[in-house]
Write a protein that binds this DNA or RNA. Structure first.
Lengths: 200, 200
DNA sequence: AAATAATTTGACTTTATAGTCGAAAAATTT
DNA sequence: AAATTTTTCGACTATAAAGTCAAATTATTT
């Protein structure tokens, strides 16, 4: 009796988790491209070579998938926020680092800022809204810091941030991972255009 | 027998057209706030003090409403494109005028750039996509002009334009006409941040 | 005020798709 | 190779919301 409880391809839990993740990412990609309500469970299943019923072995409901998609992106964004903590000398420098991380994130790993927050219900929606608010506040904090230290032009911080987040959110609509430009090039472009737009 | 065929409140066609427009704008506002699929025909009807069935006296289908909403915004945007023709000395100046018009448009009259293009089918979708493409090309033309005449920093025009259009499209999510800031102030802010971001 | 036309409705049908379930099939353990 | 557990599926039900329609109501014309 070998103990292989932690070796990837023979570990039951890991297999299950990997398959569940594949379901969520396949669905997330479809949600990004065609929208949550324009994507049926049957389509998601077919894209994975499964029947619809098999999907329900890995997820409780369609809306749970949407929720997980949001959690994954905001989790990754939280990591970005932490990873730039302590770096950068001015508010603007800090913001450039963070914004670049965000842009890279959205051009890698099939991660996307989905728009369908209103399709979530009750607690799911409240939590996702809260997490989006948290990210927005982290960005706003850096913008305000920059305005205070003179690295960012003084203006209404809310509108400034909405402008920047809008550019990021819109990536879902046009960015395809297999496009001719690499994610890193686009991220660099975004950082340039963002920082030029707000620097003092 | 009076001929009142062209006087507003007693003209049948005008009454009908006004009510139809009210239906489309009420629906459009709801679509913007909660999304196309999260808004039912019953909700639209109730918001106007009507039954669902009465709605179908004014529109053929729900998707027709969505289509009309798109047509109205892109029609208004076409007007903007025309209205700035011949104005502005450089590519950047022209773009500032156009972008300002767009931003004003979206903070007035309940007009909004709806995201749900994928909920349209067949010809409807093709036409709306084409009109969006037309607007995007008009913006791209000005960006390229600015890059050629030296008023706009050289970079990939597509990514530049996507960045700018993203900021505009995201307004749907956060802008409420009754907010504390006037639409014109926001439009001016957007023009500033846009132009600073791309000027040479 | 009777007749005609425009508008609205309650109650109904249709449709798309989410979600369930018992059993089959495949993989794993003994 | 039998027993057990995991994974998958065909065929089903449930449900929400779009869309229809004949009839009632309201407005307008004669």
């Amino acid at each position: 009796m070998r103990d292989n409880s932690s070796q990837s391809p023979f570990n039951r839990e890991q297999q299950y988790a990997a398959k569940r993740k594949a379901v969520i990412f396949a669905a997330g990609g479809a949600f990004r491209r065609r929208g949550y309500h324009n994507t049926s469970m049957v389509e998601i299943a077919k894209s994975l070579g499964l029947s619809k019923a098999a999907l329900y072995y890995y997820v409780k409901s369609k809306v749970e998938i949407l929720y997980e998609c949001h959690v994954i992106v905001y989790g990754a964004m939280d990591v970005c926020v932490k990873s730039v903590k302590g770096q950068g000398d001015s508010g603007l420098e800090k913001l450039k680092l963070l914004y670049g991380e965000f842009a890279s994130l959205l051009t890698r790993d099939g991660l996307a800022l989905l728009a369908d927050v209103d399709s979530l219900k009750g607690d799911f929606q409240a939590e996702v809204s809260a997490r989006r608010g948290k990210i927005e506040r982290a960005v706003t904090r850096l913008v305000k810091m920059g305005m205070a230290d003179g690295s960012i032009k003084k203006a209404d911080p809310k509108v400034t941030v909405f402008f920047l987040m809008g550019a990021l959110n819109w990536m879902n609509v046009w960015y395809e991972a297999d496009g001719r430009m690499s994610g890193e090039v686009i991220a660099a472009h975004f950082v340039d255009q963002m920082s030029a737009g707000i620097r003092a």
